[in-house]
Simulated scan of single mutants.
Amino acid sequence: MKKLLPILLIVLGIGGGAGAGLMLRPAPQDMVSIDPCGDGTAVADAGHASEEAHPPEEDAEPVEREYVKMNNQFIIPVVTDEKIGALVVMSISLEVDIGGQQQVYAREPKLRDAFLQVMFDHANVGGFQGAFTNSNNLDVLRSGLLNVAKKVLGPMVSDVLITDIARQDA
């Protein structure tokens, strides 16, 4: 009997949480997502007609950017006390002018070298220690990466996106 009461309370708690979640869930027609790779217009939730999505305006500025994913991840050692204390693995994409993909891939070795130097410097000043995903830390890193990307590729690069980042402590 003593074991039945905690089990009953757990079941009631789970049921109450699920019921509250269902009651507070937004109505499906209210869910709208933005397609980041599309033309920038809102797209209705998959289970509903696209009548709720707004058609593109006649005067809307056409998308003049494309995203280029770097072929391989970047692996950055984090050195503490003369030993490798962690490894940081990052994936990066570049926002470039339409048609800039071939230029990015043609200069990828030089770009990777420049990116690695920025990442090594960031690691050496403690950028990957502690709360390394803090927005201030990542903003500093993105800014450095954007600066070297513009040096290598010119003004065709408008942004550097960190698409994946993970740290594995040794």
Score class of each variant (00 low, 15 high):
I75S: 07
G38H: 07
A46D: 15
S33L: 15
Q102T: 09
M23W: 15
F74W: 02
I34G: 09
A149D: 01
L87Y: 13
A49S: 15
P62V: 02
K110Y: 13
A131F: 06
L116M: 15
L161C: 01
V88K: 02
E66G: 02
G38F: 04
R167F: 03
I98F: 08
K151L: 12
H122R: 02
L141C: 02
N147F: 04
I14E: 11
G127C: 08
E82A: 13
K151G: 11
C37K: 10
L24D: 12
I76F: 03
P55R: 10
R25F: 15
A42V: 08
G19T: 14
E108R: 00
P56Q: 13
E82Y: 12
T41F: 10
V104K: 01
R112W: 04
K3W: 05
L9Q: 07
P55G: 07
I76Y: 04
V96S: 01
L4C: 03
P26E: 09
H54E: 06
P55F: 08
E95S: 04
K3S: 05
R167C: 03
G17T: 14
R142G: 00
I34E: 10
E66Q: 07
K2D: 09
Q103D: 13
H122M: 08
P62Q: 06
H122Q: 13
I165W: 00
P56I: 13
Q102V: 10
E51G: 09
V104G: 00
D169I: 09
L145V: 00
S33H: 11
N71G: 01
G21W: 15
G85M: 05
S50A: 13
M119K: 04
A149I: 00
S135P: 03
P109T: 10
P62E: 08
T163Q: 05
L146T: 00
L12M: 13
A49R: 10
V11Q: 03
K151V: 09
A123Y: 08
E51H: 12
I7F: 14
F115W: 01
D159I: 03
K83T: 12
K150E: 11
L153I: 08
L22C: 09
P109D: 08
A27W: 12
I10W: 04
D121T: 14
A86G: 06
D81C: 08
R112P: 03
P56R: 15
A60Q: 10
N71T: 05
I14H: 10
C37I: 09
L111F: 06
P155R: 07
M1A: 12
E57A: 12
P28M: 15
S91M: 01
L9W: 10
D121A: 14
A53E: 01
L12R: 09
G154W: 04
V148C: 09
G126K: 13
V11T: 11
D121L: 11
L4S: 07
G127M: 06
M31S: 11
H48S: 12
L24A: 15
E57H: 07
A42R: 05
M156K: 02
